[in-house]
Amino acid sequence: MPTFDSHGLKGGVWRGRLTGPDQPPARVLLIQHAEVLAEARLTPDGERAWRVEVALPGSVLSDGVQTLLLKAVPEGVEGDATDAGRTLARLSLVAGRPLDEDMAAEVAALRAELELVKRELRRLAADLRGA
């Protein structure tokens, strides 16, 4: 079973190291919204290990949260490979103004849940005092 260790994103290139398989996958693809965006370049990096580098196209940068998948596609899979293969890693990109609105909504939801928990704890404490 191959293992991908992400080395992060720098200068628009996602880098990492793939270890484990005797042979590298036929292709390693960068996928977003079931669309292949790019193919990664694999170079040998020791025994049963490969350096993986994939350039992110500018089209992935937009407001909100974008999730990219890195998938290893086995030999013999041709054509639409977005559903084939194994997902090695996920990369989430967060940018833009909608993020502020998303965070505000998330904080409001957490506050509401916290108020509910506080109310229930107070009710339980009152029940224990009354018993």
Score class of each variant (00 low, 15 high):
G85T: 00
V60G: 08
L99R: 12
G76F: 09
V94C: 06
A105C: 02
L93C: 05
V54K: 00
G96I: 01
L69V: 06
L91Q: 11
E106R: 11
A81E: 11
D83M: 10
L93H: 00
S59A: 14
A55Q: 09
V73I: 15
D102H: 10
V107D: 02
L69T: 08
D80K: 07
P74L: 03
P57A: 09
A84D: 10
D102K: 09
L70D: 00
Q66A: 13
V60P: 06
W50C: 03
G85P: 03
E47P: 09
E78L: 14
D63H: 10
S62W: 13
R86V: 14
P74E: 12
G79Y: 09
A84R: 08
L88D: 00
P57H: 04
R51L: 12
G79N: 13
L69H: 09
P98F: 11
L99S: 07
L69C: 00
A55D: 04
P44V: 10
V107A: 13
T43S: 15
G79H: 11
G58V: 01
V65P: 01
L56Y: 06
P98V: 08
V77Y: 08
G96R: 05
G79W: 05
R86L: 15
G46P: 04
A89E: 08
G58N: 10
T67E: 15
D80P: 06
V60K: 05
V94L: 15
A108T: 13
E75C: 02
A72M: 05
A109H: 05
V73L: 04
V77H: 10
G46V: 07
V65R: 15
A81T: 02
G96T: 06
L93T: 01
M103F: 09
A105Q: 12
G76P: 11
R97C: 00
L68S: 01
D83Y: 13
V52D: 01
P44M: 04
L68H: 03
L93E: 01
E47V: 06
W50H: 02
P74Y: 06
L61N: 08
E47Q: 08
A55G: 07
D45N: 11
T87H: 00
V52S: 02
D100A: 15
V65S: 14
A89G: 01
V54L: 06
A49W: 06
A49N: 03
V94A: 15
W50P: 00
A109T: 09
G46I: 05
G64F: 10
K71A: 15
E78Y: 11
R51Q: 13
A89N: 02
L61G: 08
D63R: 06
L56H: 01
L99V: 12
A55F: 03
D100R: 15
L69W: 10
T87Y: 02
E106G: 10
R86T: 14
V60Q: 04
T82Y: 06
